[in-house]
Nucleic acid binder design. Sequence first.
DNA 1: GCACATCTGTACCGAACGGTACGGAAGGGA
DNA 2: TCCCTTCCGTACCGTTCGGTACAGATGTGC
Lengths: 206, 206
Amino acid sequence: MIDGMETRQKAQIGRPRGFDAGEALERAMRVFWEQGYEGASLTDLTKAMGITRTSMYAAFGNKEDLFRKALERYTEGPASYGARAVREPTARQVATAFLNGSVRATTHPGCPAGCLGVQGSLAAGEPGRGARDALITWREEATSLLRDRFQRAVDEGDLPPGTDAGLLARYVMTVANGIAVQAAGGATRDDLQKVADMALRNWPPS
Amino acid sequence: MIDGMETRQKAQIGRPRGFDAGEALERAMRVFWEQGYEGASLTDLTKAMGITRTSMYAAFGNKEDLFRKALERYTEGPASYGARAVREPTARQVATAFLNGSVRATTHPGCPAGCLGVQGSLAAGEPGRGARDALITWREEATSLLRDRFQRAVDEGDLPPGTDAGLLARYVMTVANGIAVQAAGGATRDDLQKVADMALRNWPPS
DNA sequence: GCACATCTGTACCGAACGGTACGGAAGGGA
DNA sequence: TCCCTTCCGTACCGTTCGGTACAGATGTGC
């Protein structure tokens, strides 16, 4: 039996936790988002989470585990536009929703600029390879989701026969990644929305 | 009077340097490229450069100075396709050369995958802010170069009147940034070349 | 050959890193 | 009420971080 959040809360026995694990994870996610895996120290993290190192280790494992859990939360929260996008009725709407969502998420007021799945760890030294590889896998999974969706569109006749669904998925993902980098550099939402619109102008006809 | 490399070599007096500063900087650039600013420790750097910490500090200043000089070298070396691209005769050729160059540079065999100007430091903790901001400026300068070139194309009638040169520049830069992220994640040169080709299919007519 | 300016190597600095031992505090079950 | 289990806070672990003091090595100018 596994509880949803994955932060073990085995039985109802013993002293109960004195903080909200979900809220603490949310705060940790923000720190990783803003400073990256290597740039976020345990002191930064626990201070933002409002708990001690000991509590953090007991609840989440270690720094890398915390990062992975923060990434999960990011997927279900700020990056949930991805899962929503692939449920759009046409391939074009999928691509549009995905890029629009990425623009909104990477420039959301009150949140760090950019995308945790990109700037969390793009290049890293030896101790950060785990986090980096986790993000590579994360981006690959998103690309696969898009590819499968576009392939379905090809099969259903929504996209022209012979269309390379993998290329289309990689193209959309590449633009989204570029948007994330731009946002991290301070590009505005309006600027990036125009870029997203332009990237969709050459979409194959239905 | 200033010497070209910027690594001070004031007079011909005193014990001469026992290593090639250009070669050492090249090695440092590779380490930053592969591991990022925060992920590259002085131990990693000096080991790759084949010199001691003391020699590195005497020749380059400190870690952040070394990073800035490595970035200059990167600009004149692996990223020199940028300056070449803006000299192409038409706007379309400029954009094509820029994206093709970015594909080649980010997937060059024997070099780290990706782009130093992106993965060198995208998100960072407090001590890495200098490097991060240097890269933001670096990308902005490249965008400005493209924007000015596209504006010239508009003025000369190479691009339709009323074309937003700034948007075009940001679009090209965004795709290039996305290509860099993709390359850092292991995408192949062929895959990315197809993405670059696709990104140029909706280029405004001459 | 001698003096001087610079470079090199070692050994070290204080601070920050990720991670943990341990004792006291605080709840639930009997 | 007592016990047991778990959580919390402090104080600390060894390691690594970026950076440097200092002494010896090595060349050039006189």
